[in-house]
Design a protein around this nucleic acid. Structure first.
Lengths: 168, 168
DNA sequence: AACCGGTATGATACAGTATTACAGGTCTGA
DNA sequence: TCAGACCTGTAATACTGTATCATACCGGTT
């Protein structure tokens, strides 16, 4: 795809008052479809973990998920959650944010490259950024250095549009 | 500037047989000069930590540094090392690699933007990648989304030129 | 020299994140 | 039905990073 068509800036950060319940359930539907298509099992546990990731509208840590999984009486173990998260990552349904040790739901699975992630340090929300110009530039530069990329992490910390507007 | 001028591919991964001792000591000299210029103190502890980072020719974890700092008889505490690493980061002398929880020496302090980092998953070495075309593309794309970047992390995992050559 | 404020370090404890190892359960296809 | 693959539970442990408080050092001032 070309650099022009590749830049996709459509509402990366959802509006503060958007219907988050809706986008979570539609994400679950997409996830079910993807798992069916790939012949992998979106089990009850995995579904619940994915829901928790989506229900939080900001990056959520593994131990936050853990705390919400089993209730206070019957807590789940860390491997339970990490295995589910691994599965969801492998299938492109969530992204891990290395600089936060946290996870977000992927609103748009099926991209060739992992997206860049923008993290607002004021409101704490995170959003994806797909930009083929940057993808291409990075790939070219790495190739020029003789480096073959297999996996990529791009994370940006800053201030989102809403927070900037509110500050003004 | 275009992708051509921005791509800086000068030996990003040093040759396997290069004189690592030399590049470490010259890095120490640069560090001393930078600290003097900025009026901050490159103390003995900070110098030793920086040396350890440079002496390892691949990313090194905080606890590896810790283990080498005090000897087995008189071990240092974690805060000692983390404080030194924070100082070195603030002054651009080392970079933290979030996806590895590890640190590398910065061979070229004083850049405007944090570099991209290429990590070879075969030999474990890491190298910086400065590319203004990618920088600009990312900045533009983020700005188009209304996002003001204050900090950036770009990490690429893959195979370096040497390892690719060896495999062939 | 003695004092003083700021900065750097030491030491202990603890919080947060992630993995290993093993046991048991569930689904699926032959 | 049975075997094998896959999924989950559980306990223990390793790894990474912070909080807190005490002490030591450095440079300037009286």
């Amino acid at each position: 795809m070309g650099a022009k068509a590749g830049t996709k800036a459509a509402a990366p950060f959802p509006a503060q008052e958007h219907d988050h319940g809706h986008c979570a359930t539609s994400a679950m539907d997409r996830a079910a479809a993807i798992c069916a298509a790939r012949g992998v099992r979106l089990t009850e546990l995995r579904r619940r973990v994915l829901e928790l990731v989506w229900t939080s509208h900001r990056p959520i840590g593994a131990y936050d998920i853990l705390a919400q999984l089993g209730g206070p009486d019957r807590p789940a173990g860390p491997p339970t959650v990490y295995r589910a998260l691994d599965f969801l990552q492998e299938n492109g349904l969530v992204h891990r944010i290395a600089s936060l040790n946290a996870y977000i739901g992927c609103p748009d699975p099926g991209h060739a490259f992992a997206p860049g992630i923008m993290i607002c340090e004021e409101c704490g929300r995170a959003a994806e950024l797909h930009d083929s110009a940057a993808d291409n530039a990075l790939s070219r530069a790495a190739a020029a250095a003789g480096f073959a990329i297999t996996r990529r992490t791009i994370e940006m910390v800053g201030r989102c549009r809403d927070c900037a507007a509110q500050a003004a």
